[in-house]
Write a protein that binds this DNA or RNA. Structure first.
Lengths: 148, 148
DNA sequence: TATTGTTATACTCTATAACTATA
DNA sequence: TATAGTTATAGAGTATAACAATA
């Protein structure tokens, strides 16, 4: 009791903020993984579906998932066998196979996305100023992540 | 040219901000995975090491990694065989095995942490006000991620 | 020759179930 | 009985290397 506790929120050191970013990233994927698992999908399968708002080649999927191209064969095989995506040979370059969402795949993506959004209640409760500030801060730490 | 472009940054919709969070989380793990891989470690092995700033039981590691306890045996086995951690039976409850970093393990964690910090240059360049705001925004979207 | 996608292989991660040791 | 940890097993993700088809 020799000293009063400051009322203002403590300022985190940069290293503390990094720890919090790690915790936030872990929380994000814990959420996403749980939502995918509710539909019998793995994290990678869910991420792959989420990348298919437009058709993409096997190669570009591998690049976006930061994994070797050979992995995509199995991942897309499993999604295809469940009727969530289909492959189409690119008419302009027959080496390329474009992966597209089926109707069922689009529905799955929509549902996961909606549930993710509704679980992040903090986002919807932010003011415009707060969203703008948040976006700017995220862009500074992770360049190239600006919203579309 | 019929209208001037607003100079103020655009305000992202909540859904756009969610997409950006997804991109930021992906970027965080892409970074972390690459740093771990430089030392021949997988993502999970790197995460496990990072959790061991204090000794932890196999069970608590599984809880923190959000995976089944049976998985930890193999993960810790591989870390132990490389001399990065060791197991100690808890003297108070002999069912429990506490996992501790070795000297080499501590060095590895230090290096990964330092490289992660220096790659997130945006964090170190933030003012105190910005760090405080960032922390508060992260806490609102991901409750329970407050820095220590 | 270079690129796209696949296959084969080996290793790691993961959940489930059954088991041992300890409480 | 309940809990901590391990083992066995099967499925999925991962990188590497080699291959066929196409450019």
């Amino acid at each position: 009791m020799s000293q009063s506790v400051p009322a203002a929120p403590a300022v985190p050191a940069p290293a503390q903020l990094m720890d919090q970013l790690a915790a936030a990233a872990a929380a994000y994927y814990r959420h996403f993984t749980a939502l995918a698992a509710e539909r019998g999908l793995t994290l990678v399968q869910g991420k792959t579906l989420s990348l298919l708002r437009e058709p993409r080649s096997m190669r570009s999927l591998a690049d976006l998932l930061a994994c070797d191209a050979s992995n995509m064969t199995g991942v897309v095989d499993r999604l295809e066998s469940r009727g969530l995506v289909r492959r189409e040979v690119d008419p302009a370059d027959r080496r390329i196979k474009n992966v597209l969402l089926t109707e069922a795949g689009e529905q799955t993506v929509r549902l996961i996305r909606a549930e993710m959004m509704s679980s992040l209640t903090g986002l919807e409760q932010m003011s415009e100023d707060e969203r703008r500030d948040f976006q700017a801060l995220l862009c500074r730490v992770f360049p190239g992540t600006a919203a579309t």
